[in-house]
């Protein structure tokens, strides 16, 4: 029983991956719309873009980690 609950929990945690996907999409989309408005400033901001994507993605990775922990470590 406990194992099954853990699996359900892992599945719920996996929703976080979708949320992270929304975050990454927002970051990249906003960067792109900004870059198309002012392409000359875009080149200098790629580092910021990657940092933003990394932060957004890290939270998705945390939820994935929770899922893994529930699946394999609990």
């Amino acid at each position: 029983m406990e194992g099954e609950l853990a699996h359900i929990g892992a599945g719920l945690a996996a929703i976080g991956s979708g949320a992270a996907a929304i975050g990454v999409g927002t970051v990249a989309g906003n960067f792109l719309s900004g870059a198309l408005r002012n392409p000359s400033a875009a080149a200098g901001q790629t580092a910021t873009l990657f940092i933003g994507i990394a932060f957004a993605e890290a939270l998705g990775i945390f939820s994935f980690l929770v899922a893994l922990l529930l699946m394999f470590a609990v």
Partner: peptide
């Protein structure tokens, strides 16, 4: 976050 981001990304992809 610094460490889990790196390990998590790679582990996730490989898994």
């Amino acid at each position: 976050s610094h460490s889990i981001r790196l390990a998590g990304n790679l582990m996730a992809g490989h898994a």
